[in-house]
Amino acid sequence: MVVLERVTKQFSHNGNKTDVVSDIDLTIAEGEFVCLVGPSGCGKSTLIYLIAGLEKPSAGRILIDGTPITGPGRDRVVVFQESALFPWLTVQQNVEFGLKMAGAPKAEQTKKAGHYLRMVHLSRFSGAYPYQLSGGMKQRVAIARALAMDPKILLMDEPFAALDAQTRHLLHEELIEIWRETKKTILFVTHNVREATVLADRVFTMTARPGRLKKGYAIHLQRPRRESDPHLVVVQQRILLGLQEEIAKVVKDEGLDYLVKKTGPVAVGADGSGGAR
């Protein structure tokens, strides 16, 4: 179980302190799949880094199964937006990396890496280097690399944002499959509302600057889900309506509000991105 208690993160810029995320209370149950959606710059990634232990909260605390975290730990692994694979290692060696760092015997490294590469259907590419893979394949390797460490919690920071719709769709199915099989707790950050509703048990929206949790939506629909499922579309519309306000804020902050005046309210695409982009 992951518990965030009044978590705030400030960054100071030339002496000016700004809250990036503010006052976040969130509890994620064991084995739950939670998505965070919000406009760009709302601190979604910061939240991931805080839970990963890569950043320290300015206030509040984060508990994993009741124990406050003090830094990065093998129980929480991040899958980043770009694959962040190590280019000098083969696919197999990349997946073995975490195990190697943990001092696992070579035979175990090989076995586990092989297992998780099969899970993401990339066994054939175990000897390839990252530069020889497509974007989707890289992300699958990154997922295998994270799973190989057998973390309790998988933190995913817009992992599929750079992929084309087709590949993303396939990876959604694959991720759900993996999640069912491994029963990991997943916190998945995205700006894509449709993606969030297809994947998550609960979707949380965030406000823009400072990032606060705005609202939670439970989705009790059976998986695999289709993006165009009428029930999901209703939820998507509700989420988007809530987000529109936040996106308008960003638009104003970024001096793009003249576009809004000229063209009326900003049209929000179903992927959560503002029309002004």
Binding site: Y49, A52, G53, L54, P72, R74, R76, V77, V78, F80, E82, A84, L85, F86, F97, G98, M101, A102, R145, M149
Partner: peptide, 12 residues
């Protein structure tokens, strides 16, 4: 930084 972050979360 991304490479460092990835390495750190894997215990390096």
């Amino acid at each position: 930084p991304l490479v460092l972050r990835a390495a750190k979360t894997m215990g390096a």
